[in-house]
């Protein structure tokens, strides 16, 4: 599957430092259409920094970012959204008191007349999106998110991300707070996203989940990429070893001069 994938996002040699702390050192990373790429690493390995760089929250100090093969500069979350990059954060960023439709369209409401919300149109396309992702566990899209289970909320957060013709979806710890059955649902959903032709990046500490859903695994350690595996050609021991003791190419923790 990897061989068929077209790289949608390619990072080459990106670095980022915060003062004297080198968070990322010349990291290469790519995400291909139709492929689930896992991003793993211990705490402080630079996963979040990498994601925030892609999301436009941070700017990389150096390195090249290619989107669809074209060099791009992502300076703000809006730039990222315009390219079709959507991020589902760990804490989901849903408003509990609003219903499913309102959450899926938050910040991008469809208007009827100049001021009036077009609820029918929003409900219609929310239903379509949920249907296309085979999310059938939600009783009604007019339920408040407060009434949903963790897995359902995750599904809504993912559906919200893919509704906008997105090309690349990044999921930050999507299964962290979920039970077994709900984890199953979310992993199935992640797989379906890739099967629809999206590029999917999943960050997780749970290697079991990763081996279940990912096609390739990028391992970060101390801000450097120590390995890139094809899931089919590796095993959990090998990945764990890379996470904890992978070979570093650069001297860690020092800003390069």
């Amino acid at each position: 599957m990897t061989e068929n994938g077209v790289p949608i996002l390619q990072l080459s040699g990106v670095s980022k430092s915060f003062g004297a702390v080198q968070a990322l050192t010349k990291v290469d990373f790519e995400a291909c259409a139709g492929e689930v790429m896992a991003l793993v690493g211990d705490n402080g390995a630079g996963k979040s920094t990498l994601i925030k760089g892609i999301a436009g929250i941070y700017r990389f100090d150096e390195g090249e970012v290619l989107f669809d093969g074209q060099p791009v500069h992502i300076h703000s979350p809006r730039d990222a959204a315009q390219l079709g990059i959507e991020i589902v954060y760990q804490d989901l960023a849903l408003a509990d008191n609003l219903d499913v439709v309102a959450n899926m369209f938050l910040g991008r409401e469809v208007l009827q007349r100049p001021f009036r919300l077009d609820e029918a149109a929003m409900e219609e396309s929310a239903l379509k999106t949920l249907d296309s992702l085979s999310v059938t566990t939600v009783r009604s899209v007019r339920q408040a998110v407060a009434e949903l289970s963790g897995g359902q909320r995750q599904a809504i957060a993912v559906a919200k991300a893919v509704m906008w013709n997105s090309r690349l979806v990044i999921l930050d710890e999507p299964t962290a707070a979920l039970g077994v059955a709900q984890t199953r649902q979310v992993l199935d959903l992640v797989r379906r996203l890739a099967d629809k032709g999206l590029a999917v990046v999943i960050i997780s500490h749970n290697l079991h989940d990763i081996f279940e859903v990912a096609d390739r695994i990028t391992v970060l350690r101390l801000g450097q990429r120590v390995n890139l595996y094809k899931t089919a050609e590796t095993n959990q021991q090998e990945v764990v070893h890379a996470i904890t003791a992978g070979k570093l190419e650069h001297v860690p923790g020092m800003a390069s001069l």
């Binding site: 979350p77 809006r78 960023a93 408003a95 609003l98 910040g107």
Partner: peptide, 15 residues
Amino acid sequence: YAIGGNMEAARRAGI
């Protein structure tokens, strides 16, 4: 309503 429910979510939604 969104800001009252989850200010951070509202901010991330571009509000």
